[in-house]
Structure formats: structure tokens, C-alpha cells
Amino acid sequence: MAERRKFKKRFCKYCEQKVEFIDYKDLASLKFSLSERFKIMPRRLTGNCKRHQELVTVAIKRARQTALIPYIVDRKNVVENPFEIIK
């Protein structure tokens, strides 16, 4: 009871920049919402609003289909700097 939540108040990065549409080819803007294993980061960690999370999700899935970003990063083919590759 006495302990309060210590989280910072989260805000949507995309709302702040007034992003209307997220292009799946623009990997720099997707990077923010990807974990280091290229999973889609949940909203509770990134602070994205629901609308932008939905846009990001679609964009990431399209980028995966076109082999711009990987579906999975596993131990079988380890990459040293995963973010270096997808510049």
C-alpha cells in the first residue's frame, strides 16, 4: 500500500511526432517497436497508443513478409549485430 508504482508516465512517441502513417520500408521508424530479437514490443513497454500500435504491427508484418526484417532470431544462425544488417 505504502509503495507506489515507480514507473515513468509513458507517452506515445508516434503521437508526439504526429505520425499519420508508418511505411513498412522505413526500418528506422520500426526499430523502436522491435525487441532485439525482432519481436513486436508490447504496448505496455513502449507506451504506444492503440492506434499507432496497430499501424506499427501491420508495418512490421509487411516488412517481415518482404524479408526486410527477420521473423525470428534463433541460436542456429547467430548474428553479431542484428541492427547493423537492416540499415
Binding site: R64, T66, A67, I69, P70, Y71, I85, I86
Partner: peptide
């Protein structure tokens, strides 16, 4: 023309590909 890029995962045993939009 995005040019020759490395693919994120092998596609038909190719590691690279020429992207055009």
C-alpha cells in the same frame, strides 16, 4: 530502386536480393 540488399532470412537459398518498388 532500393538496390541489392541482404535478406533477413534465406529465400529459396538466396541470401541477397535486388529490391524494386
Amino acid at each position: 530502386d532500393m538496390g541489392m540488399r541482404k535478406l533477413a532470412y534465406p529465400v529459396q537459398k538466396n541470401d541477397r536480393g535486388y529490391y524494386t518498388v
